[in-house]
Amino acid sequence: MALAGIFLMLFLVFHLATNLLMLAGDGGAAFGNAVEFLTTNPAVKIMEYVLFAGFLIHILLGVALQWQNYRARPVKYHKALKTETSRFSRFMFHTGVIIFIFLVIHLVNFFFVKLGWVSIPGEAGEVADRYDFFGMAEVMFSNAWYVAGYILAFVFLGFHLKHAFQSSFQSLGLNHTRYTPAIKVIGTIYALAISVGFSVIPLYFYFIH
């Protein structure tokens, strides 16, 4: 769980870095170059499968754990637990489900387009071809509802990551009186950076571009 999680967290950094190239102000030229590299390089192709495996493991394990944990307390408390814990940690499965739904939509909107499973969005000519993600983003993020939903998903992703970051260190036993407090701070910064970073993009397209 933790290992797959860490892998996914690294992926998010990489994904964000690529996406932020869209904000370069060059009409998507730098971003286009990156997309071209990523869609043609064979090593990236392999990583794509690894990434799917990562998602799959993380999701399946998450569901299995949730099921086990549910079964571990067949009779629930009448009075709900008042034990003080971080809210983020208690709702990992719930935030996980929301992120999963977003992930499916996200794949349909972009990845499946690339594969040719789903037709290119927008009016004819708005998007050059099925590799023109910049064009797709322009079309998608012109819809206010879509932007709002997208941002909301990243708020939940932020919650998920806020706990995930330091939790993964704990699960792997990487704990130290000196460094653990720093890890917690970095975790918060990371979660904020990912959710703000990804949210900036639709806002940019909607309001500025």
Partner: peptide, 26 residues
């Protein structure tokens, strides 16, 4: 059940045993 690092155990342990030991066990 499995640990999901919510740390409720440490909060309610009457002897204040730290979850750091869980990391050590992991």
């Amino acid at each position: 059940g499995f640990c999901s690092n919510t740390y409720g155990c440490e909060f309610d342990c009457p002897k204040g045993i730290s979850v750091d030991f869980i990391a050590l066990m992991n």
